[in-house]
């Protein structure tokens, strides 16, 4: 069984690696120091199990797990934590297993035997439940959006995103370096990122901070001008007064 160890503390990683090596049939595939590295390593090393610390700088474990779950063949995930009041409560509500540090070897062995993939619904619920009771630095919204592209996962930082535009089946994410498709609903995105993005049409959300102005096209419809974004999305009549108010 190939295992990836993710923790921001080198000493915590080395202890966990030592424990894993002592277990028959288990090997350490690699180590990562934060969520983003973890995603890269998972794609490069294709481990069977990821031991994922919850509190990490950059991208925390819960968000990393959410992105992992969008992979075609996601690894199983076991969360580890030293002490996180709110997170543990969230884990109980979502009936997820976790390991408390310092981790006991027999506990680790048991968790590795019975571990399984987490479902996306479980993870979304987890993040929401965690955010509600959180007094720590975690927030409900993800820091990145993940899109499956050819050859792996692309992570788009939320601050780079200009708009979300819903087509037939997918949502197009327009960001500084181009566009990607994701399989999420505008409604859930609006719920999660409501403080950063505003709805301008039944089919579009745009970054509040990027709104520069409005223009009328030849058909007389109102379109929005976004900073660092060539595409001019249409504003529906219903949302126009709202956007005008924000521009003032």
């Amino acid at each position: 069984m190939k295992i990836l160890i993710v923790d921001d503390e080198p000493l915590a990683r080395s202890r966990l690696a030592a424990l894993v090596r002592e277990l028959p049939g288990c090997e350490v595939a690699g180590e990562a120091g934060n969520g983003i590295q973890a995603l890269e390593q998972v794609q490069a090393l294709e481990p069977d199990v990821v031991l994922l610390d919850i509190r990490m700088p950059g991208m925390d474990g819960i968000e990393a797990a959410r992105h992992l779950s969008t992979l075609e063949t996601p690894p199983a995930v076991i969360f580890t934590t030293a002490y996180d009041d709110y997170a543990l409560a969230a884990f109980e509500t979502c009936a997820l297993d976790y390991l408390l540090k310092p981790i006991r070897q027999e506990r680790l062995a048991r968790a590795l035997e019975s571990c399984h993939r987490l479902t996306r619904a479980q993870l979304a619920a987890l993040q929401e439940a965690g955010a509600r009771g959180s007094a720590a630095a975690q927030t409900e919204a993800r820091s990145h959006i993940s899109a499956r592209v050819k050859g792996g996962l692309r992570l788009v930082p939320v601050e780079d995103i200009c708009f979300f535009h819903a087509d037939q089946k997918y949502v197009t994410v327009g960001y500084l370096d181009g566009e990607v498709l994701i399989d999420e609903s505008l409604k859930s995105l609006e719920k999660e990122f409501g403080d950063r993005f505003v709805r301008i049409h039944r089919n579009a959300l745009v970054a509040r901070a990027r709104i520069m102005g409005l223009e009328k096209d030849r058909g007389g419809r109102c379109r929005i001008i976004l900073r660092d974004c060539a595409r001019r999305l249409e504003i529906s009549r219903r949302h126009l007064p709202d956007i005008r108010r924000q521009l003032r």
């Binding site: 503390e9 000493l11 915590a12 002490y83 009041d85 540090k101």
Partner: peptide, 16 residues
């Protein structure tokens, strides 16, 4: 408590 448990983990690692 966060500090206590993290320190315990550090010690557990250093012991080896």
């Amino acid at each position: 408590p966060h500090f206590l448990f993290n320190s315990m983990n550090t010690i557990a690692s250093l012991v080896r």
